[in-house]
Write a protein that binds this DNA or RNA. Structure first.
Lengths: 205, 205
DNA sequence: GTCTATATACTGATAGAC
DNA sequence: GTCTATCAGTATATAGAC
């Protein structure tokens, strides 16, 4: 009854998807240590032993989530096109990254939790996988600046600032909403306005 | 033998200081749920029951840390002087906040852990204490912009961006260092250069 | 594949000797 | 005030019936 090379049936894939989604909910809210298998099982509407039939351990679920996340997470940066218009490429990157904070806040918080607590599980990926990508794209941006298409500034700190500013609206959502107050229903439109202005003034020649 | 109104001897105060310092170490690295009383006791070079002689519970230590932190944390914003030179006031605020990330990274991470996981312990303070302060200072900045002393932009998101960008260098330190590589010994000088340039271009008329 | 029941380990907190 | 010993509660993971 196997219907794909990985040896998973349609039902199995569905259950695994349900579990990972529930685990993302729980891990992103309480962190790894603050989450219990019981909570995840309940959120996935499964018994605890049944959940552990699909994943060998709590840590395996967490690792599975993080492994799949990093690829998605850096995708907007990977799409930065050396052939495109410099300013538009970077503003598009900012918009995509902010959209991810709006649409995938759980993933953002999972990642933030992990890095904040020392990146125990993905530290190697940061050096082996993220650094080369940033180096590559920073070189592109540096070239644009050298050509006079953008105002000069440190390209790697420019990338840090895009990460920091966009992810802030997911990771510190509670604080943002507490400060803005209930009269601001959705902070993201005004955040996008602010960030586009900020990076235009920072980069536009 | 009491030597102050709070009823603490010099030795008691010293022990409590040792415990809070150790707890800051542990909580900021592992979060509240990820930390154990044993870890904190070991870091403070005390036995677990001895530690619990000075604080009634693990949560009491955590609460004590957070209560004392918020005041220190917003102090640079409180110092923003309506009578000062607008651009210099804000750039000084940025420098002070970045210095706090450099000199107090544990406090920054403790706060980040707390907000990231929903601000369960300080949620009320954000609304009752932080929001009014931000409202007050945002009004000052708005006035400066209306007077033409600064380029216009949303003052509250300006404050968010200062928090986000400066705290990033403490909270995501592992990632920053992984991406910059070992040849950058201290990211803070180049971070300060970048941020001062960024906010100058954003605000200078 | 899924369940109930449970083994095993850890953690926060306390009892009671000194 | 500080310690050893320990309790009670919780958490991960597994055994074994169905």
């Amino acid at each position: 009854m196997k219907d794909n090379p990985a040896g998973q049936t349609r039902i199995q894939r569905h259950k695994i998807a349900t579990i990972t989604d529930a685990a993302l909910d729980v891990f992103s809210t309480h962190g790894f240590r603050g989450s219990t298998v019981d909570q995840i099982a309940k959120a996935a509407e499964l018994s605890k032993p049944n959940l552990l039939y699909y994943f060998p351990s709590k840590e395996a679920i967490h690792t599975h989530l993080l492994d799949n996340l990093l690829d998605i997470w850096v995708d907007p940066l990977r799409q930065l096109d050396p052939e495109g218009d410099p300013l538009e490429e970077i503003l598009t990157y900012v918009r995509r990254k902010l959209a991810m904070s709006r649409d995938m806040p759980r993933e953002s918080r999972l990642f933030a939790n992990e890095v904040l607590q020392g990146a125990q599980h993905i530290g190697d990926s940061l050096s082996n996988f993220l650094k080369p990508l940033v180096d590559e794209k920073a070189a592109v941006i540096q070239l644009w600046m050298d050509q006079g298409a953008l105002k000069p500034s440190d390209p790697r700190h420019l990338i840090f600032s895009i990460w920091s500013l966009t992810q802030h609206y997911a990771d510190f959502d509670v604080q943002v909403r507490a400060v803005l107050g209930p009269e601001v229903e959705d902070p993201f439109p005004e955040a996008e306005d602010y960030l586009i202005t900020l990076f235009s003034r920072q980069l536009k020649v």
